[in-house]
């Protein structure tokens, strides 16, 4: 029974990691690749750690596994945000199928300042001005 649990967790974790790698190979541009790689990879690592903790069935292993899971949950989004932002700001081209980009107009590449005005959302304001 315990063996079955371990096998399920390890296999699903490995499957998520496999999908992450497949995604990073197949997807067309940087942000979509990050959707696939960072999150599916992190989820795979967390699932494998859960399997490891169940397999050892020890409090020491539980402490370490919990530390790893907590650490991955804390750091993955921060790293993804940093790389995604850096990639976007230096002008990595987006995929042709991208249907909308509200950030490009509001961002000043030289001064690195970012406005919050949103022309798409508040059409009334723009039209009032001549």
């Amino acid at each position: 029974m315990i063996d079955l649990f371990i096998a399920v967790f390890l296999l699903s974790g490995a499957a998520f990691m496999f999908l992450a790698a497949l995604g990073i190979l197949r997807l067309p541009d940087l942000p979509t690749r990050m959707h696939s790689s960072t999150k599916a990879g992190a989820l795979g690592a967390m699932l494998i750690m859960v399997g490891v903790v169940i397999g050892f069935a020890e409090w020491l292993a539980f402490a370490r596994g919990a530390a790893i899971v907590l650490f991955i949950m804390l750091t993955t989004p921060i790293a993804a945000h940093a790389i995604g932002r850096a990639g976007y700001m230096v002008g990595v081209p987006l995929w042709d199928g991208t249907i909308k980009d509200e950030l490009r107009d509001n961002y000043d590449l030289q001064s690195h300042s970012l406005q919050s005005e949103r022309r798409e959302q508040e059409p009334g304001k723009d039209r009032e001005e001549p």
């Binding site: 990050m34 921060i78 950030l103």
Partner: peptide, 19 residues
Amino acid sequence: VANLISLTPGTLSLDVSDD
């Protein structure tokens, strides 16, 4: 909020405006 949005696949928070 930004980190949890980043953690769910399909959404990735890029930046917060200056204000």
